[in-house]
C-alpha cells in the first residue's frame, strides 16, 4: 500500500498562479480604470452640458432682474384711470349745475327786463357821468341821480334773486379724490404734486363757455394749496400748472421744511376748503384729499408732458 502523498506547494505552480492572479487583477484594474475614464468622460460631457444650461440661465435671470427692478404695481395707471373717470363725472355734474343756474337766471330775468342793458347803463354812470356831476346844474344832477338810483334799485332786485349763492342740485352725492404726492423727506427742497379730477385745460375751456364747476373745483384746490403754503411760511413758493393724461396737475417746489407738517397742513386745509365750498356742497360734490407715494403720480417712463409756471 502506497503511503499517502502530501501535496506540498509547488514553487513553479505557485509562481504560475501568482502570475495568473496578477494578470487577472491587472485586467480587473485596467477595466476599472477604463470604466472610471468612461465615467469621467461622461461627467465631463455632463458638466459641459450643465455649464451650457447654466449659461443659458444668465439672460433669463437678467430679464427677471430687470423686470424686478422696474416692477410696477400699476398704481399710476389705476390712479389716473380713476381720476379720469371722476373727471367725466364732474363734467356731467357741471352740466347739471349750469342748467340749474340758467333756469334760475332766466326766471329772474323774466321779472327784470334787459339786465345787460341796465348793467351797461350802471357802469356808464359810474365811470363816465358820475365824475362830471359836480359840474352840472343842480336840476340835471338830480334828474340823473334819480334815474341812476332807479337803475341801482332794479339791479339790486335782480342780483338779490340770482345773487352769488349757488343753486342747490337735487342729485346723488358725487365722491371725488384730490391726490397729493410729496417727493423728498423735507431735508432738501420738496416737490409736491397734486392731481385734480378736472380737465388740464379747464381755465381756457371755462372762458370758452364750459360749465364753471370744473374750474371752481380746481380753484378751490388751488386756494387750499396757497393757504397751505402761507401756513408753512412759504407763500411765494414756485407753482406750476400742467396737464397729464388730460387732467390738471399742479406742482409746487417747497423749500426744505418739516415734511409731516407740510402734508398735515395741505390735507387739513384741503379738507376744510373743499368740505365747506358752497358751490361744491350745492352741487353734491364731496372731495377727499389723500396722500399717495409720490411715484404713483409719475408714469413708469418719463412723461413728455409740460408744466407751465404759474407766474
Amino acid at each position: 500500500m502506497d503511503a499517502p502523498t502530501e501535496h506540498l506547494p509547488n514553487v513553479a505552480e505557485a509562481l504560475a498562479r501568482a502570475v495568473d492572479t496578477r494578470a487577472s487583477r491587472e485586467r480587473d484594474l485596467l477595466g476599472e480604470l477604463e470604466a472610471l475614464g468612461a465615467e469621467r468622460e461622461r461627467l465631463r460631457v455632463a458638466i459641459l452640458s450643465l455649464e451650457a444650461q447654466r449659461a443659458a440661465l444668465d439672460p433669463i435671470e437678467a430679464e427677471v432682474r430687470a423686470e424686478l427692478t422696474s416692477l410696477d404695481d400699476g398704481a399710476h395707471e389705476v390712479l389716473f384711470n380713476s381720476l379720469i373717470a371722476q373727471r367725466a363725472a364732474v363734467a356731467a355734474r357741471a352740466e347739471l349745475v349750469a342748467e340749474a343756474a340758467r333756469a334760475q337766471r332766466d326766471a329772474a330775468r323774466e321779472t327784470t327786463d334787459n339786465i345787460d342793458a341796465l348793467l351797461v347803463e350802471y357802469r356808464q354812470f359810474r365811470d363816465v357821468i358820475e365824475p362830471t356831476l359836480p359840474d352840472l346844474p343842480a336840476t340835471y344832477r338830480s334828474v340823473l341821480k334819480a334815474h341812476h338810483d332807479g337803475v341801482v334799485s332794479r339791479l339790486r332786485q335782480f342780483f338779490s334773486r340770482v345773487g352769488a349763492d349757488p343753486v342747490p342740485l337735487d342729485a346723488p352725492a358725487l365722491d371725488l379724490d384730490v391726490v397729493i404726492g410729496v417727493d423728498g423727506d423735507g431735508a432738501e427742497a420738496v416737490g409736491v404734486t397734486i392731481a385734480i379730477p378736472v380737465s388740464g385745460d379747464v381755465r381756457a375751456a371755462t372762458l370758452e363757455g364750459a360749465p364753471e364747476l370744473e374750474l371752481t373745483l380746481a380753484a378751490r384746490v388751488v386756494q387750499a394749496i396757497y393757504e397751505g403754503l402761507d401756513a408753512i411760511g412759504q407763500p411765494t413758493a414756485v407753482t406750476a400748472f400742467g396737464d397729464h393724461r388730460g387732467l390738471l396737475v399742479v406742482e409746487v417746489e417747497v423749500e426744505p421744511t418739516d415734511r409731516a407738517d407740510l402734508v398735515d397742513q395741505l390735507l387739513g386745509i384741503m379738507e376744510d376748503v373743499l368740505g365747506t365750498s358752497a358751490e361744491l356742497l350745492a352741487a353734491g360734490v364731496r372731495v377727499r384729499a389723500l396722500e399717495v407715494p409720490a411715484d404713483h403720480l409719475f408714469p413708469p417712463e418719463e412723461s413728455s408732458d409740460t408744466l407751465e409756471d404759474a407766474s
Binding site: 342780483f159 371755462t206 404759474a310
Partner: peptide, 23 residues
C-alpha cells in the same frame, strides 16, 4: 358788491390767470 361775475370772467377783466386770481 352785488354785481358778480364768475371767477374766469373776473380774472379775464384783470388779464390774469384764474389761478393767479385765487392766489
Amino acid at each position: 358788491e352785488l354785481i358778480v361775475v364768475p371767477l374766469a370772467v373776473a380774472a379775464e377783466r384783470l388779464q390774469i390767470d384764474p389761478f393767479e386770481f385765487m392766489r
